[in-house]
Nucleic acid binder design. Sequence first.
DNA 1: AAGTGGTCTAGACCACTTT
DNA 2: AAGTGGTCTAGACCACTTC
Lengths: 268, 268
Amino acid sequence: MVKSPPMSSNPSQLNNNGATGAGTAASSTSSPTFSPLYQQIKALIMQSLQSGEWKPGELIPSEVELANRYKVSQGTVRKAIDELSAENLVVRRQGKGTFVATHHEAKAQFRFLRLMPDVGEHHAPGNRIIDVRRLRAPAEVARQLDMKSGDSVIFIKRVMSFDGTPTILEEIWLPGAIFKGLTAERLIEYKGPMYGLFESEFGTRMIQASEKLRAIAADEQVAELLAVAPQTPLLSVERVSYTYGNRPVEVRRGLYLTERHHYRNELS
Amino acid sequence: MVKSPPMSSNPSQLNNNGATGAGTAASSTSSPTFSPLYQQIKALIMQSLQSGEWKPGELIPSEVELANRYKVSQGTVRKAIDELSAENLVVRRQGKGTFVATHHEAKAQFRFLRLMPDVGEHHAPGNRIIDVRRLRAPAEVARQLDMKSGDSVIFIKRVMSFDGTPTILEEIWLPGAIFKGLTAERLIEYKGPMYGLFESEFGTRMIQASEKLRAIAADEQVAELLAVAPQTPLLSVERVSYTYGNRPVEVRRGLYLTERHHYRNELS
DNA sequence: AAGTGGTCTAGACCACTTT
DNA sequence: AAGTGGTCTAGACCACTTC
């Protein structure tokens, strides 16, 4: 007599385990792994993001609409979107809706560029493309990109300048299969962050990255490109970037001149 | 006629704006700033953490109990604790309860130590205390600690070793008023992370930190302490640590030898 | 006025832990 | 069996945006 819960129809093909309440583990029989409903919804939404059903910058369906589509309550959809929002995959705007996150925004610009000027503001960097070519992946790069050694990759070498001072020398490797049409011209003429170009022109959105930092001494070739003395200490930043599903799609090795800049990191 | 919501008594001195529903902005009149109920609850809980009503490692009252205390629903308390958990101020354990986070845990150890060995696991570091003394705060340190130049600070200088290899040279400044009884003996005899000592013996818990990284060259004094050649490139890490209420309570300048280690950072 | 995300409540059931 | 956090639902009202 204690119970008279409202009871809606069971979510179609989702693994909800009967009743109104929630549940994590298996209930009836079979099936190896179960997860909370909102995690399943989250995974479904992420699939739609990955497949391009909703593109960067676009509005995704409202919470009510998604709740109807997936046959769950709005609160469950809400919790799923909460996590996607916390992971910077979508952006919520009160009164307007929920949008697919994009690298074409002033806000998202510096999420992947942690080098800050010691004093003053961040200006738009200069971008000098030194080299773009197609080559066979070196063993170490292939390993990091989860490719076979010798597979085709696009290689980019460039120098970024701040206030006219060469500051970052970067080498970038990208899977050739994904970034087939990428040329030096396209990189030079493109205004804005490189990840914006990748997202718009190649349908590949970087959503996470892992960096290893070291201090090294500039060799002669590097010193010349950065216009500093050989042996100048440089901050070495080796990055592997990932797209949906933790698929590695970029290796980037940067050398940062830190005489008037620093790499900012918040520990929390 | 559309409404017959359940309606509980109004939360005592909290700024709930009538009715069952929520609300952010002002409703009736007066009062300058408002915030969602769960934010107010979060602030109240944080006060209890800061005041030491619930100490690190201890169990805090259950969600139901807190809901009764603050005269709000369990869901509202839940959302408050969700955020505290996301900020690593508390740790939830299903079936057991919610605990105040502590630096005395294997898990929390490496939240503030990002230097990782290139290969293999992290071993317990050796800790050689070079100097501990009381002195007047240099201008720059005073500024970072929000103190007056010349105020009393505790100064610590130490070298940490991994696998017997000197790897980190650190200088640390702490407000003298807070860390009065801190001696070299105490630092040497203490086993475990320094932040655990600060938390247990001085009632000051570091909850957040901000770091600036640079590459520099070792001078002769540094080179000798780290047993490397002068001019060896080192990773300079300047940290300001904060306790509750964003109060800065530590300045730390570290020089990391990155020949067999790297500073790991996840961008997400 | 209608639609969207944001807050709050109440109640139910679940999984996990301890008694 | 009792208590705790974890999930799910339904419904109400709010603030913000657009029509």
